[in-house]
Simulated scan of single mutants.
Amino acid sequence: MRKACELVGGFLLFQGLIGIVHELIGWFRLMAMIRLLPFLDGYELYTSIGLAVVGFLVVAVAEESGKSPSGPLIPDADRARPE
């Protein structure tokens, strides 16, 4: 599940960055899929920025969910109980 989230997040981040570059510079015309959606006409830059942010957040959450929980490690936890 984590790999799938990283893949989807990476794709969203990539599309967002490509859309930003396309709107500002004009490059990557064929790779920017945002421009193909007619209902976003005039809002391509804002949509690309939002897509890049959402993609970054998905990747960050996927990375964080794969880590072990933080907290103090208690060696010999059986001895820590009062008797």
Rank of each mutant, 00 (worst) to 15 (best):
M1E: 07
K3D: 08
K3V: 09
K3C: 03
A4F: 14
E6L: 15
E6I: 06
E6G: 06
L7G: 11
L7I: 11
G9H: 01
G9M: 06
G9A: 09
G10L: 00
F11P: 03
F11V: 15
F11K: 02
L12D: 05
L12Y: 06
L12W: 12
L13D: 00
L13E: 07
F14G: 06
Q15C: 08
Q15W: 04
G16I: 01
G16D: 03
G16V: 01
G16K: 02
L17I: 14
I18N: 00
G19I: 06
V21Q: 06
V21I: 15
H22G: 04
E23N: 11
E23D: 08
E23S: 14
E23M: 09
I25N: 10
I25S: 13
G26H: 06
G26E: 02
F28E: 12
F28C: 07
R29T: 10
L30T: 07
M31K: 07
M31C: 04
M31N: 10
A32R: 01
A32P: 00
A32I: 04
M33G: 10
R35H: 03
L36Q: 12
L36K: 12
L37S: 05
L37K: 01
L37P: 00
P38A: 15
P38T: 15
F39S: 13
F39R: 05
F39C: 13
L40K: 09
L40I: 12
L40H: 00
D41N: 12
G42Q: 10
G42E: 00
E44I: 03
E44Y: 06
E44Q: 13
I49D: 00
I49K: 04
I49G: 02
G50P: 15
G50Y: 04
L51Q: 11
L51A: 11
V54G: 03
G55Q: 00
G55R: 05
G55F: 02
F56G: 05
V58C: 08
V59N: 02
V61G: 04
V61W: 10
V61Q: 07
E63D: 09
E64Q: 12
S65T: 07
G66Y: 07
K67L: 15
K67Q: 14
S68Q: 15
S68M: 09
S70N: 03
P72T: 01
I74A: 10
P75C: 03
D76G: 14
D76L: 04
R79T: 05
R79H: 10
A80W: 00
R81M: 13
E83Y: 11
E83A: 13
